[in-house]
């Protein structure tokens, strides 16, 4: 067992691009679930729409619509399309469903997210979306920007336990800036009267209505804000690997993001980030450690052969989510008092 290298790999992942995807998705979901109390089970769809907006603009639409346009401009158009996509999705999803009670909203949003994933992966639309293989080849401009700052594609950076390629590091620089900015926005918004209305809606919609606030409009605004932050996660997700694959954005993705938000403590500014980091570290560490145990034969194949590592890690995560919600629903850094007053 090489604990040092396992630990190093897990720590590297803990700050890496994938973590950033989860962290951004979780920060967005925290606006929905933590602050406003909306049970959005379709966060994966917002991430998908962000990633696909960028990918489809660059790979599919721009060659059709704006054949002569410079690659740099096309890239930014793609970002714009992803953001607009998230807003439109929030409106499409929210206008009809936000009147529903929490559990109905959960079913409606998870269904909508599945519809979107299935439409993206359908072979009927393969010509545009690339079907289940998704799309690639839209990250070049972004990587060239990175080269300007010295993040060469082939370069390797290592420092202490950390080890990243140039591409990854460039994604991380942008991603961490986005994480910082979105957390700043959430922090500012949630200590303002606007955030106060959201938190009040979480507690009791009717009371807020009786005080003359348009609850529906606020919920929609919250859905849009969280969704746009989700789309940012989609950009990072697409730009890290240079591909978008529809099945990345399965319900499972949303469930993990929920686990992260609750782990870190819902309705706290740093909660989602901390939750995502712990979750992702645990996931990586367990996977790598168990894989080594299995490959080196320390655990015999009858107990754990390498193909069973994945399921076992998920079993542990499932058990972890259950235990967390039962014994520490306020998350690691949450305030017990706030939860024990829970009126629902």
């Amino acid at each position: 067992m090489d604990f040092v290298s396992i630990f190093n790999a897990a720590v590297t992942e803990m700050f890496g691009p994938t973590l950033l995807v989860y962290a951004l998705a979780a920060i967005g979901l925290n606006v929905h679930f933590g602050y406003t109390g909306m049970l959005n089970f379709g966060q994966a769809a917002f991430v998908a729409v962000g990633a696909y907006g960028l990918a489809l603009m660059v790979v599919t639409f721009a060659p059709m619509w704006f054949p002569g346009l410079a690659a740099g401009a096309v890239f930014w158009l793609g970002i714009l399309l992803g953001l607009i996509g998230a807003v439109v999705l929030a409106l499409l999803l929210g206008v009809p469903t936000l009147r529903l009670r929490a559990d109905y909203l959960a079913i409606a949003t998870i269904s909508a997210a599945e519809i979107i994933r299935r439409v993206f992966r359908s072979s009927t639309l393969r010509e545009w979306t690339g079907g289940s293989d998704g799309r690639s080849g839209f990250a070049d401009v972004f990587r060239e920007y990175g080269m300007v700052f010295g993040f060469d594609r082939g370069a390797r950076f290592s420092w202490g336990p950390f080890f990243y390629t140039g591409t990854q590091l460039w994604v991380m620089v942008v991603g961490w800036i986005l994480v910082g900015l979105t957390m700043l926005v959430v922090w500012l918004a949630m200590r303002s009267p606007w955030g106060r209305v959201l938190k009040a809606i979480r507690e009791d919609e009717d009371a807020v209505r009786s005080l003359g606030k348009n609850v529906f409009s606020y919920k929609l605004q919250a859905l849009i804000l969280g969704g746009v932050i989700g789309a940012l996660a989609g950009f990072i997700s697409g730009l890290t690997t240079g591909t978008v694959i529809p099945d990345t954005y399965s319900p499972q993705f949303t469930f993990f993001v929920y686990a992260m938000v609750i782990l870190g403590g819902a309705a706290r500014v740093f909660g989602p980030l901390v939750g995502a980091m712990i979750f992702w570290f645990m996931f990586q560490f367990l996977t790598q450690a168990l894989r080594q145990l299995s490959v080196q034969g320390i655990l015999p194949p009858g107990v754990l052969d390498p193909t069973q590592v994945g399921p076992i890690v998920f079993v542990l995560l499932g058990a972890g989510i259950i235990a967390l919600l039962i014994f520490r629903p306020q998350g690691i850094f949450g305030d017990r008092r706030e939860i024990s007053l829970d009126v629902r």
Binding site: K199, K213, L341, D342
Partner: peptide, 21 residues
């Protein structure tokens, strides 16, 4: 909510205090 803004405000039989605020 518009009724409330017009100046006609109500309370509820089951009190709706916003517990976690």
């Amino acid at each position: 909510y518009k009724v409330a803004r017009l100046g006609m405000v109500r309370t509820f039989q089951l009190t709706k205090a916003l517990a976690r605020l």
